[in-house]
């Protein structure tokens, strides 16, 4: 970028200041994280010693193993993987379909629908927590409910309750529409002349051309869903078998009472964030695109 030819003292001072700022910031970002990973390795005595011990002298690696033997970590991890995979797959498909229709067809009401998609993004999530909870609870004909939604527990305490409310997002539809807008119409018209149906055109011509868009939305949804807490906690509070990693660790907080189990808790939290960090290291450039696409709109 900038080639600093000016060798004046001010500019040198600026450079020093820049890196000092960035280094202090990086320390503030990293030190608490390291405290969690290292806290899992400290002995109970080291956890409360004065002066404080940051790097444990005798690392308790066993705590990371205890996470898998003393906590239902594998169950939580399976739930997290399943829910995240389902939500990501559903959202990619439904957002791509809706985004494609809004970008590439002229049909009555399209512009109103698109404006509704933009407007719907303004509605905050907290507004939906109570009504969606009870819509799932009283969903007719599911989970022992009769046709009026009475008698059973509906979708509550099932995976569907965690997954369905996230099966589509307005943001995903908006993002996919933007990507489909860039696909030239000539390609699809040529396929139509060759006699291809609209669904073939969608799946074998349009979709492959927006793979970067799918990757962007995919990593976005993956990170969001893996880290989702409020909704999952609300619908799985009484169903330990369905809890995801963060929800499970939070709801089990009463079990982490002394210094030894707190190390176990920190180890479990460390395990909960590793999959995202690894995914992110490989796919972060797609994430940037998703965030900045949202910013362009405003």
């Amino acid at each position: 970028m900038a080639i600093v030819k000016d060798r004046s003292n001010w500019s040198k001072l600026g450079t020093v200041l820049k890196y000092t700022l960035l280094t202090i910031g990086a320390f503030v970002m990293l030190a608490p994280f390291a405290d969690m990973f290292l806290g899992a390795l400290r002995t109970p005595a080291e956890r409360i010693s004065q002066p404080p011990v940051y790097f444990p002298r005798d690392p308790q690696w066993g705590n990371y193993l205890r996470v898998f033997t003393e906590l239902p970590m594998l169950r939580w991890m399976g739930n997290s993987l399943f829910v995240t995979a389902m939500v990501t797959a559903l959202q990619l498909l439904t957002s791509a379909m809706a985004g494609y229709a809004l970008a590439k067809y002229n049909f009555r009401g399209r512009d109103i629908l698109f404006r509704s998609v933009l407007g719907a993004q303004m509605f905050p999530f907290f507004l939906f927590i109570i009504p969606i909870f009870f819509i799932l609870r009283y969903f007719p004909l599911f989970g022992g409910n009769d046709i009026l939604g009475q008698g059973g527990s509906g979708f509550l305490n099932t995976y569907a309750a965690i997954i369905l409310p996230f099966s589509i997002t307005w943001y995903g539809i908006f993002l996919m529409r933007q990507f489909f807008m860039a696909v030239p119409n000539e390609l699809m018209d040529a396929a139509r002349l060759d006699g291809a149906g609209e669904f073939r055109i969608f799946f074998s011509i349009a979709l492959p051309l927006v793979l970067p868009g799918l990757a962007t939305l995919g990593i976005f949804v993956f990170v969001y869903q893996w880290n989702e807490v409020i909704w999952t906690m609300t619908v799985t509070r009484t169903a330990p078998d369905l809890q995801t990693i963060p929800v499970g660790i939070y709801l089990l907080r009463g079990a982490f009472i002394d210094q030894s189990t707190r190390s176990l808790q920190q180890a479990a939290l460390g395990v909960s964030i590793l999959p995202v960090i690894v995914t992110f290291l490989f796919l972060q450039r797609y994430y940037v695109r998703g965030l900045t696409a949202g910013a362009v709109k405003g």
Binding site: P32, F33, D35, M36, V223, W226, N227, V229, I245, P246, V247, I249, Y250, Q265, Q266, L269, G270, S272, I273, V276, I277, F280
Partner: peptide, 10 residues
Amino acid sequence: ITNVVAVAYI
């Protein structure tokens, strides 16, 4: 990219 439970407990 860290879940809020981990952030809170950190």
